[in-house]
Design a binder for these strands. Structure first.
Length: 585
RNA sequence: GUUCUCGUAGCUCAGUAGGAUAGAGCGUUCGCCUCCUAAGCGAAAGGCCGUGGGUUCGAUUCCCGCCGAGAACACCA
């Protein structure tokens, strides 16, 4: 299960070294509190929170829990502590409000440290050591060969890729696994269909369309001619037995399909380390079945071999069908075993549609019953279902929205907008493409995975407000300013940055690290999407009220540094969720 | 039927390891381009956080019931 792990209170944690002292504002505050109250530092760190409004302070310490032991009202305690607190260059001000002790950090000190760090680290800002030496496996995308990518696959692919990139940024070794659906009795049908009606030229040109066309024809024809079913069964048997002709066709379908998939992955900068799918595990299932038998976990039920999971409140896990054939679960068990041996993973994530929650829960439980405690390190990460307002979006229903259609539609609409807004752009097509991809990826990754996505063209092609183009646009404007400013001043006097808007930006730059951690712990890319949006919003506010180019030289330099920092962090975040930023738009 | 997820503004959603006036975007209404890209910014209106209990100094947040929506539940993957 996607265990929602503890998320950290966002802290203004500073990793750069200034004057040899590691700065951590939150810790500084905690240290100071610990001198006043009888409580362990760690406990204090846990209690410290960020006030809901920034004018209340940068950190807050709730005093309610002292009320009982000290036999005093919380607001009295807070007032008392505020009186005893000594301020300095780190914590500039303390206030008691309600039962809270509110702290204000020294703004210019804070801004200085944050901007220095962002600019020094560049694209590596937020990179951490926490994942060093640990391998995280992320299984995602996993389409079926010979079948077109639909919108549901796109959701899954973007989600998995984002999670993988987030973990990679945190220093983990990652393995991107595409468990493609490349095996099963339906390939008998596919081969039969192709042998009857396939066209080699069309296959080379548009493989998936051609394969789908003959597959659909097969289903139409089989109603008139039921013997086709038998033919398909025989061909699948031949394929299983290694018949060269069948193997050749299957291999060709597989290769061409993957080439097609890669085109789409390329649009979002997605790559895989492995395309080992179902076929890869066909010869690895015997061992699993034997192990289950040896451990006396297999039970005969209605002619099939199952693992009983009743004591865990789950339906049984089917291992062998009554005809002795293996099944989905058997393959996933074999894959788990293989992955454990091959990668010795720290975590193995299954980014799969939410509908498969039970299946994976069962798999993990069976592994546990087999004595494999490493199954605790496997997590199911269920992705949103895409539905229409009135009905489920299912492959069989015919109400399919293909990924390609969504991207094409987005591309066309974007090109129109680019034409209207900035018709003298040199590379309109390229810009339109990036913006279109941005709109789609953003919409897919802006919300919690637990919620279904109700498909609407209006939402997915959104270009205003909370949207991909909004964030891209913000970054583009910032970059444009930097370009116009020419050479970046080496140094800048950050003490010139004294407005609320500038301080707010520094806070958001810093808390990006906490958001990264939270996104990883929760397996939730939307945390990044939202953070980047907040940052864009704050920058737009700043941009509209603060002159940069026309500011006096020292201030201009500082604001350019700020602008560069913001663009940098926005771009890091957007890239994680599969969005590129054009130079102009 | 069993299990799981969800129910927050007209719509789409954040928030909640219990805490200070519940936040965004869209939509609606009204402002802002002699100034760095208006795909932008500002303002207004809009909420018994599904419902009834319980625990607590304090519940939108935790627990239980109910109502409503969705999903999964063995020989498909």
């Amino acid at each position: 299960m996607s265990a929602r792990q503890k998320t950290l209170t966002k802290s203004f944690h500073i990793q750069t070294y200034t004057g040899g002292i590691k700065m951590d504002f939150k810790k500084e505050v905690a240290n100071k509190i610990s001198q006043l109250v009888d409580m362990e530092l760690e406990k204090i760190m846990e209690l410290i929170e960020i006030p809901p409004q920034s004018n209340m302070g940068d950190y807050a310490f709730p005093c309610f829990q002292f009320a009982k032991t000290m036999r005093k009202a919380p607001n009295m305690i807070a007032a008392d502590l505020a009186g005893k607190f000594t301020t300095d260059h780190v914590v500039g001000k303390v206030e008691a409000a309600g039962g809270y002790l509110n702290f204000f950090v020294n703004k210019s000190e804070f801004i200085k440290i944050v901007l220095s760090e962002v600019l020094a680290k560049g694209k590596d800002f937020g990179v951490s050591e926490e994942g060093k030496g640990k391998t995280v496996l992320v299984e995602f995308s996993s389409p079926n060969i010979a079948k077109p990518f639909h919108i549901g696959h796109l959701v899954n692919t973007l989600t998995g890729s984002a999670i993988e990139k987030i973990y990679r940024h945190l220093g983990y070794e990652t393995q991107r696994l595409n468990h493609i659906g490349d095996y099963g009795t339906n390939f008998g049908k596919q081969i039969a269909a192709y042998k009857h009606w396939g066209n080699d030229e069309a296959l080379e040109k548009e493989p998936i369309n051609e394969l789908l066309r003959v597959y659909i024809k097969f289903h139409d024809e089989v109603e008139k001619n039921p013997s086709l079913e038998d033919e398909a069964r025989q061909l699948f048997k031949k394929l299983e037995d290694g018949d060269p002709e069948m193997m050749g066709l299957w291999q060709k379908f597989r290769d061409l399909s993957i080439v097609e998939f890669k085109k789409l992955y390329h649009e979002f900068n997605i790559e895989f380390d492995s395309y080992n799918g179902e076929s890869f595990y066909t010869d690895k299932m015997g061992e699993v079945v034997q192990m289950l038998r040896d451990k006396n976990l297999l039970v005969l039920s209605n002619g099939a071999q199952i693992v009983d999971l009743e004591e865990f409140g789950m339906p049984p896990c089917l291992i062998l069908k009554s005809d002795g054939a293996t099944i989905y679960a058997t393959r996933d068990l074999a894959a788990a075993l293989y992955r454990h041996r091959t990668y010795n993973f720290h975590k193995c994530l299954y980014v799969v549609g939410n509908t498969q929650a039970l299946h994976f829960k069962q798999i993990f439980r069976v592994l546990k019953q087999m004595g494999f405690d490493w199954s605790d390190n496997m997590s199911f990460v269920g992705t949103s279902l895409v539905k229409f307002a009135d009905r489920k979006l299912a492959t069989r229903s015919g109400d399919i929205i293909y990924a390609k259609d969504v991207l094409d539609e987005a591309g066309e609409k974007t090109l129109e907008i680019v034409e209207a807004k900035n018709s003298n752009l040199a590379n309109k097509a390229d810009v339109a493409k990036k913006v279109a991809m941005g709109a789609v990826a953003y919409t897919i990754l802006k919300n919690n995975k637990d919620k279904d996505i109700i498909f609407s063209w209006e939402d997915i092609l959104s270009f205003e407000g909370d949207s991909g183009p909004y964030v891209q646009y913000t970054c583009v404007r910032g970059k444009s300013v930097l370009r116009k400013a020419g050479e970046m001043p080496e140094t800048a006097d950050y003490s010139k940055l004294i407005t609320e808007e500038e301080f707010a930006l520094a806070k958001l730059l810093d808390s990006f690290k906490a958001s990264l951690k939270e996104a990883a712990d929760r397996y939730e890319p939307f945390v990044i999407t939202r953070h980047v949006t907040e940052l864009a919003k704050a920058y737009n506010k700043f941009y509209n009220t603060h002159p940069i180019m026309n500011a006096e030289p020292d201030l201009k330099a500082a604001r350019l540094h700020l602008t560069k920092s913001v663009c940098n962090v926005i771009e890091i975040g957007l890239n994680m969720i599969g969005i590129e930023v054009p130079e102009n738009m």
